[in-house]
Design a protein around this nucleic acid. Structure first.
Length: 192
DNA sequence: TGGACGATCCCCT
DNA sequence: GGGGATCGTCCAT
């Protein structure tokens, strides 16, 4: 997937089904993207709407890199940057379905009670839950997602029939824009 | 130099 | 359904 020449709005549904791998302390964690939101600099809800700042600089960088920011005094959110360098676009990863490294993911989330072979959708069904589960913080801001220890792996497109497109969560500006995408029926989606 | 706010989560009622 | 936690960032003084 050529994220440099793809808009956030086009990339957001296209990223569903792709895998994210994270290596930490020699252990590989994996998850499949099941929910995304698109943001770009002409969108009043986007961090880049009012221009470049120290915080959002990586969102103005080339597609295929990470934009990680800190919010609410305690949470991190992870985005995949899209578009050419100089244009501020990105796709927020709102939820993944964990597929590898479940025990470490449980530990990172402080949920050790559920057996590893049972589905615990609360592990990664939200943007800050995902970053906590995968040990992602601002040290990975700007990271090239073709390189370890955090990589994006392409996958065949999810059928349009299986994707729900609706409004984004937790914003006020431009709240009617349908720029949130998720795999219909997936248990890890934050809010169906 | 300070105040308001936030692309959230969790626990309470 | 509502509020508290908790602090980096941004912009207005």
């Amino acid at each position: 997937m050529d994220l440099v020449h793809t808009t956030a709005e086009a990339a957001a549904p296209r990223l569903l089904g792709c895998t994210i791998s994270r290596t930490v302390a020699g252990q590989e964690l994996r998850g499949t993207i099941v929910e995304t939101e698109a943001y770009h600099q002409d969108d009043p809800a986007s961090h880049t709407y009012r221009g470049r700042t120290r915080r959002n600089r990586s969102m103005f960088g080339p597609g295929g890199h990470a934009y990680v920011y800190f919010t609410y005094g305690m949470h991190y959110c992870f985005n995949i940057v899209t578009g050419r360098s100089g244009y501020g676009g990105a796709v927020l990863i709102r939820a993944v379905a964990p597929s590898r490294g479940i025990k470490v993911i449980q530990k990172n989330r402080g949920r050790n009670s559920t057996p590893a072979d049972r589905i615990d959708s609360g592990l990664t069904n939200g943007p800050a839950k995902f970053t906590q589960a995968f040990a992602i913080d601002t040290k990975l801001d700007g990271h090239d997602l073709t390189q370890p220890p955090l990589q994006l792996h392409p996958a065949p497109p999810v059928s349009t029939q299986d994707i729900t497109r609706t409004t984004r969560i937790g914003i006020r500006a431009n709240q009617n824009a349908k720029l949130r995408f998720y795999i219909t029926g997936n248990p890890y989606v934050s809010r169906p």
